[in-house]
Design a protein around this nucleic acid. Structure first.
Lengths: 143, 143
DNA sequence: ATGTAATTGAAACAGTGAATCAATTTCAAT
DNA sequence: ATTGAAATTGATTCACTGTTTCAATTACAT
């Protein structure tokens, strides 16, 4: 239990720094969020609304946005919905997204990352993070 | 006039092949669409609703989706809205974004694109489009 | 223990895009 | 050129996603 201690303290730091409070709801949502790689607010709502003390959908939205501000999550728009990606889960994986069926494949490519660094250096930038999404058709949808 | 002849005939081909009709509205929307790199339905509506014979918003949506099916446009979700990209303006630019001052530098890198194709092929995907954003500090903000 | 500032949940609201349907328009076949 | 079936249009309604509102509740510094 609690290899997620790092993320929990990261959230507590953010809360303290901004005069926000650690609530039962925020803890529950964080625990559920850290277990998944990426979720929508609806998915998380269906998952958590079964539990004993009900958590409202508005709170889910607010909390996932809070996670984004705290750097724990990253929002990504896909097919009229917002996916909240777990930043700690991705050692640095990017996404292949099928525009047909919505399937998402995660990948990691060191060569691409090296070239990104090179592009940044040539332009006087130092990279903090990046987002790479490849959209196309998977084998099943291409037929 | 009409260096866009290629796109116009591409649309006519698609219409004929699917027993669809070439209407005044579709011609107007196509002309406006080919002039821009990427638009939302709302932008196009504001642009075209000034014109003499009014074009309804529903028609804009339907027609932009038609362009996607005909291969002239590609839909992309961005900040809760759908951007319709003009495929014929395919000079693909990626972005370096300074998290300090917000400066955006556009770049293009063939080597990265080649590696993207390779990743996609290994996963059975064929790429239609991609989005690459590098976030970091520019030279001025790093001091 | 207390006061106040933040949080919650239900409901109302707002924005985007799709579906409906009667009236209109295209276009192929006369 | 006329006709008629099929496609299209646009106003409206509808569905879905996400945010805002607000009274009641809760966390937490004092």
């Amino acid at each position: 239990m609690n290899k997620n201690h790092k993320e929990i303290t990261a959230l507590k730091d953010h809360l303290a720094k901004h005069h926000l409070k650690l609530t039962r709801q925020r803890e529950h949502i964080l625990n559920a969020f850290l277990r998944s790689e990426h979720v929508t607010a609806e998915q998380m709502y269906r998952q958590l609304s079964k539990k004993d003390p009900h958590i409202g959908l508005a709170t889910i939205y607010r909390t996932l946005n809070l996670f984004c501000e705290a750097g724990l999550a990253q929002a990504r728009h896909f097919r009229s919905q917002t996916q909240y990606d777990n930043v700690s889960h991705k050692g640095h994986h990017d996404h292949l997204i099928c525009t047909g069926c919505g399937k998402i494949v995660e990948f990691e490519n060191c060569d691409i990352e090296r070239l990104q660094e090179e592009v940044a250096r040539r332009n006087g930038f130092t990279i903090q993070t990046h987002k790479l999404e490849l959209y196309g058709l998977c084998a099943a949808c291409r037929r």
